Amino acid sequence: MSEAPHGAPIKTPGQLIAAIIASFAVPIAIIVLLVIYVDNSTRTGAGTDSLSEAEVSARIKPLAQVDIRDANAPRVFKTGEEVYKAVCSACHASGAAGAPKFTNTADWAPRIAQGFDTLLHTALAGKGAMPPRGGTSPDDYSDFEIARAVTYMANNSGASFPEPAQPAAGAAAAASGAAAAAPAGASDTGAAQAAAAMAAMASVPQAAAPAAGGTQSADASQAGKALYQQVCQACHAAGVLNAPKFGDKEAWAARMKDPIDTVYNYALHGKGAMPPKGGSTASDADVKAAVDYMISAAK
C-alpha cells in the first residue's frame, strides 16, 4: 500500500509573501518588547524639563538672601563639633597648609603641650596660613564657640581639656546695648570692640569675696591661671579694646616698660575700659598672680 503524498504548507503566492513578512516582523517585535521590558523607566527628551517649576525656580533664584534674626532672642551656642565641621574641617580634616590633622596625636602633641590658653589664642589671632578665627567673624561664632571647637579638636587628638565655661545669659544683651550706646560717627571696629568688651564684662563669673585677712593661694601660678581662664581671657585672649593679647610679646613689652607694681595697680584698680580686677571679686593676691601668669606667657 502506498502512502498519501505530503502537500507543501505554502501553496499560493500570498502565503509565501505572508511567511516572508512574518519571518522578519516576529523577531523584530520580540526584540522591541524585550527592550521595553528591560528599560521600562520614563524617558524624556533632552530639554523637555527646562520649563518645569523646579527648573524655572532654580534659574530665577536670587544670589543673595536676607536672614532675619530676633536680636532679643537668647543665643543658642554651637557645639565644638558643629563649629569644627562648619569651619575648621576645611583644613584640619586633611591637614592642609600644615594644619594639625584632626585625631592625629603626633600632629597635636606639641601643640597640646603648650596649653589650652595658647591654642585658643592661636585660633583667635591666627597663625601662619590660618586666618584669625578661621576666617570667620565674632558675629558668626563667638569666642566661646571658638574655644569649644579648640577643645573638641584637641580632646579628640589626645588632650583632656575641660569644656569652656558658657558666658552668662546677659552677655549678648550687654553687647547690643554697648553697640547702641557708641557715639555717632564712631568706626565700626570701635563699636564692635566696645560691644565685645561689655559682653565680656557681663560674662565674668562673680566669685565670693574673700574673707578679711585671707592669704594668697598656696600655688600662686595655678591661682593666676585659674583667674585668667575665668575672667581675664574674656578680653585678653582676643585683645578686646587694645588689651594686650595673651602670649603677644610685643604687646606686653610695651606694658612691661612700667614697674611691675604699676602693672599690678592697673589690674587692681582698672585702666581705660578695664574695670578694677576685671570686674571680679578676686583677692589682690590672685589678681597679681593672674598678671604674673600672663606676663610669663609673653616672655
Rank of each mutant, 00 (worst) to 15 (best):
A290K: 06
S283D: 14
A90Y: 11
P74A: 15
G224N: 12
A175L: 10
A200H: 05
M153N: 05
A129I: 03
P13I: 10
M201R: 04
M256Q: 14
T136P: 07
S176W: 00
V56H: 02
P275R: 13
K78Y: 11
S89E: 14
E250I: 11
A172C: 00
A207G: 13
I68T: 08
I21A: 14
S221F: 11
P167V: 00
R59G: 01
C88D: 11
T44I: 06
D248S: 09
D143H: 02
I60D: 01
F144V: 01
A226M: 12
E81A: 11
W108V: 02
Q114G: 06
G158S: 08
A282I: 08
A289F: 10
D107Q: 10
G98L: 06
T262C: 00
G239E: 07
A220Q: 15
D49C: 00
S2K: 04
K288S: 05
Y264D: 14
T12D: 03
H121N: 10
T42V: 14
A113S: 13
A181V: 01
V291E: 09
Y228S: 08
A253E: 13
A184G: 11
A159H: 13
A184T: 12
N265D: 15
M274G: 08
G14S: 11
Y264S: 06
S41E: 15
A192C: 00
D284A: 01
T48H: 06
G279C: 04
R133I: 03
A96C: 01
